[in-house]
Design a protein around this nucleic acid. Sequence first.
DNA 1: CAAACGATTTGACGTCTGTCAAATTCTTGG
DNA 2: CCAAGAATTTGACAGACGTCAAATCGTTTG
Lengths: 243, 243
Amino acid sequence: MAKIKCQVDQCACSVCHVLQRSDWRVLAGDDLAILSSGVAMRHYRAGETIYWMGDANRGIHCVSSGLVGVRKIDAEGNSVLLRLGYPGDTLGYRSFLMGSEHKTSAETLEPTALCHVRPETVAQLLERNPSLGLQFLRRASDELEQAHHAIFQSVTLSNRQRFVHLLLVLARRHGRPRPDGSRTIRLPLSRGDLASMIGTRHETLSRIIGRLEADGVANFSGRLVHVPKLDALAEELEPGMAA
Amino acid sequence: MAKIKCQVDQCACSVCHVLQRSDWRVLAGDDLAILSSGVAMRHYRAGETIYWMGDANRGIHCVSSGLVGVRKIDAEGNSVLLRLGYPGDTLGYRSFLMGSEHKTSAETLEPTALCHVRPETVAQLLERNPSLGLQFLRRASDELEQAHHAIFQSVTLSNRQRFVHLLLVLARRHGRPRPDGSRTIRLPLSRGDLASMIGTRHETLSRIIGRLEADGVANFSGRLVHVPKLDALAEELEPGMAA
DNA sequence: CAAACGATTTGACGTCTGTCAAATTCTTGG
DNA sequence: CCAAGAATTTGACAGACGTCAAATCGTTTG
């Protein structure tokens, strides 16, 4: 017998390594079996497009590994990165549930594995198990709160403060703590995407980075960031701030 | 017999004048009766607070008439108006479903009538009729899309363009078309709130308004706006724009 | 009706940001 | 390993914005 390539985590959602972090965790038993039968995993290289804004919805995606960027674009070429999708996150559920075209584009930012769930399967599961809908609702509520928070910050915080905030968020996911309390972060984004996330241009971001280095708060080398003291970063967001 | 004050639209949701515009329209029969029994209408004057950001959730509100403002505030006194609630809109459903405190404050911007639905009633209805949850999900999706759109615009449009866009949106709800094609709008918001909605300060908005008047695009007198040609306004949002 | 208060407008000024352009660095395919 | 192309940084400059302050205007309260 030829050895069978390990497909355990590809074919059986019930033993998926991100199940407990995903929306599908509300399912069990037969529901999980139905899910498994309607799922196909696909591997993407970095920089591939999963779907375009305006495309018709063709099911829901679940991030198995890697990193996905969700963005809005327009005819003039403006592009704004709205959020990042990590393992366990669900993509495309909104346009599926609204019966509309995709309102955002999604692309891989790293080599990524995605599980695609067929629309009929999602519909079937939603009908069998109402808690799945409520789970999607929780996800939407959470995303909405994050969006509101971003809007609020774009009005009340400076570009520098917003970038520092973004750095702190990225540090949580992509940072490696060092024994001496400092932290190294490998940014998963280009300067342009970082800039669009805080609502400015990449040239401006470049200057903000320059000032952060001059102030000794962080050191940048390409996509590598070294933060000597996370606390010093966090203090920049405090109300009582000195220039 | 003393005349009974008309309470038809206050006590029976099944004949509510905004039912078909509200999330509750997915209910029928017994469900509607249950809703009615768990609902109480209350009249607010303009400027009253319905709930504060940080308050524990105590049920869901449904706007019957009037206008509600949903905003985020912080300790320094920054305040950003995030959206407006019109008759038929639902308030407070997110914190209810997430079991969290309110993430935003809500206040009346005009004399307003709200129907309050007790938490137990909402829970009961959600359990009896899964489509209610899906309806809330549709609402959350819609709000999320609007929030994403706002974020995108805050990056790609100028302050003036964002204000023009806001004017066009307000014109739809609060504008009165004139026979000659012009339009009069009664703004329901102060300059400060208008400014926060486009992400700037009230002084800056004042100057934008001044320029709009100088350009003959619109005339402002307090909260009254007169727009000679709506098309001229809409053209400001077109890609090919001259200074 | 008048005073008091808040909202709005206007002015002055320094800083920040966007734009255009060029230099530099980094990546990637050959 | 080199070269072409993309990404990033830096410079220069004008315009826009935020802040502080003062002047108007409008509304509310006594």
